[in-house]
Every structure is written in C-alpha cells, then in structure tokens.
C-alpha cells in the first residue's frame, strides 16, 4: 500500500471517481517549522533527546479520524523523580499540537492512552518533561489509508 500524499488525497476524497475541485486553498498541513515552533512554545529553550518515551500507534491505520495512541514514559513517578508533562506533536496535521498531558507523582504511572486524528501518514512525536527539567522524545511512524466508499454528506 502506498503512502497517500496530500495531492492524491484531494483526489481520493472525491470518492470513487468524482473529481473534487478545491477552490479555496486552506492550509491542510503544518510545516515542520510549525512543529518546531509548537515545541519551543511548550518547552522554551530546551533541547530533547530520544529515549525513555515509548509511543505506540498502529503502523497501519485504516481511518485517520480515530487512531489509537498509547504513550508511556520510563519513570518511577516519585516526588523526587517524575514526569511533569507528556505532549504529542504532529508534523503533518493542520495544527502541530495533538494533546498535552500534565501529571505528577500522584499519577503513579506515566502512561496515557487516547484516540487521535491524523491527516496523513507521518511520524508522530511525543515529548516528556521530567521534574529535573530534562526533555525526552519518542516517535511512532504511521501509515494512514483512506476508504474507497466515502460519505460525501
């Protein structure tokens, strides 16, 4: 199965063969700079390194409207050593932010699950900030397919 590019998506959205002409271009993708800016806004002046964050999203998702996401951070979650926030970012959605989760030692376990929308195939980023100020990253690559029979309303 091939990745669906935004250009093809406009086509595919037309359903089984109809040509949809989008007259007004609307920004359907965040540029990677948007993602960087969103990360800077959340964690000013910080750099991150890969590790401690396990982000699980199925490799192949059959509809981008509801994609299961599970993120866990390796942390004892004690008063002395815990995660303060986990934030999820998308390089391809119209907005780079997906969710921000705030937790602490009362969570006991730094694990959160939800369901998200993905506009396209992409590599989703999860960042976890620790109470010592360090920032850790985990990624998940997802291929989003699109159905053939689409309800055009």
């Amino acid at each position: 199965m091939s990745m669906i590019t935004p250009d093809r998506r406009g086509f595919v959205l037309g359903g089984a063969g109809a040509l949809v002409v989008q007259l007004v271009p609307i920004p359907l993708r965040a540029e990677p700079e948007d993602l960087e800016r969103a990360v800077r806004e959340s964690f000013p002046g910080k750099t991150y390194q890969e590790g401690r964050v396990t982000l699980k999203i199925p490799v192949l998702s059959e509809n981008g409207n509801s994609v299961p996401l599970d993120v866990e951070v390796d942390s004892p979650m004690t008063d002395e050593d815990h995660v303060t926030s986990i934030q999820i970012f998308s390089p391809e959605n119209p907005l780079p932010n997906i969710a921000k989760f705030y937790l602490g030692p009362r969570a006991g376990r730094a694990r959160v699950a939800t369901r998200i929308r993905l506009a396209d195939s992409q590599r989703v980023l999860a960042l976890a900030e620790m109470n010592d100020g360090t920032l850790w990253a985990g990624y998940a690559k997802v291929i989003v397919t699109i159905a053939a029979c689409i309800d055009l309303g």
């Binding site: 119209p94 969710a99 921000k100 009362r106 969570a107």
Partner: peptide
C-alpha cells in the same frame, strides 16, 4: 488535580 489534559482538534470525536 491528579491528571490534566489540554485537548486540540486532533483529538478524535
């Protein structure tokens, strides 16, 4: 508050 989430349009219906 033991858990808090900020939600964006990318959270599923």
């Amino acid at each position: 508050t033991v858990f808090r989430a900020e939600l964006f349009p990318a959270i599923s219906a």
